[in-house]
């Protein structure tokens, strides 16, 4: 497992394992900090071209539509090469927002990071 630099406190840890990038996000994500998350996501996708983008949202109690837009943009890019976004440990408000936006079915919701890594390609 290779540790990656992130340069934003909203994503304190990033790791690479095979064709997967695993990220832990932290804190509330809104228009204030979502641009930095977007920059990081696009950099990681361009640099590593992963097939699995695994986001641990245990420590994200809230996100707004600007954060959702970042996730969807990343998913758009991943889908072009057959990749997926996996979300783990959704907190109630984040899950509620995904449901309202009818996005809970386009991301792969998994119990933990191991489940994402074990999913068939």
């Amino acid at each position: 497992m290779e540790e990656l630099k992130t340069n934003t406190p909203t994503v304190p840890t990033a790791r690479r394992s095979g064709d997967a990038i695993l990220l832990s996000l932290k804190g509330e994500i809104d228009l204030h900090n979502s641009p930095a998350v977007r920059t990081l996501f696009l950099d990681l996708l361009k640099t590593y071209n992963p097939k699995r983008f695994v986001l641990n949202l245990t420590d994200v109690p809230y996100m707004d539509s600007s954060a959702i837009a970042v996730l969807v943009e990343a998913l758009q890019k991943l889908r072009k090469t057959g990749g997926k976004i996996y979300l783990t440990n959704l907190q109630p408000r984040v899950r509620g927002l995904l449901e309202i936006a009818r996005l809970d079915s386009i991301f792969v919701l998994v119990k933990d990071e191991d489940e994402a890594l074990q999913e068939p390609k």
């Binding site: 959702i68 837009a69 943009e73 758009q76 927002l97 936006a101």
Partner: peptide, 16 residues
């Protein structure tokens, strides 16, 4: 379109 960024804020306002 859920697969295109944008529009979620307006949906929230309308539905909630």
């Amino acid at each position: 379109d859920p697969l295109t960024p944008g529009g979620v804020g307006l949906i929230c306002i309308r539905e909630l």
